[in-house]
Amino acid sequence: MNVFGAAALALLVTVALALVRAARGPTVFDRLQAANTVGTCAMLLLAVLGFLGGRPEFLDLALVYGLLNVIGVIAVLKFFRNGDLGDPGHAKEKER
C-alpha cells in the first residue's frame, strides 16, 4: 500500500470517528462540529484521492468543498439561532 492509500485510510477513519460523534451528540453544536470535521476531512480526502488516482483535477472539487463547508456551518448556525427548525424566526410577529 502506498503512502496516499495510508493517508486516505486514516482520513476515512477520522470521518468515521466524527460520524460517531455526530450520531451521539448530545447538543446540536457537537453535531455541527462533527460535520465541520467531516467536511475538512472530505476536502483533504479529495485532494489525496486526486493524487492516488493520478488526477489532480480533484483539487478544484476540494476548493469548492472547503468553501461550502465554512458557509454551510455558518448558515446552519444562523438557522438555529431562532430556535428549532419549526421556528419561523419572526418572534415579534408570533406574539401578536
Partner: peptide, 10 residues
C-alpha cells in the same frame, strides 16, 4: 494528526 482530532472528538 487528523486521526488525533477524530479520537479527541470521541
Amino acid at each position: 494528526f487528523c486521526l488525533v482530532g477524530g479520537i479527541g472528538l470521541i
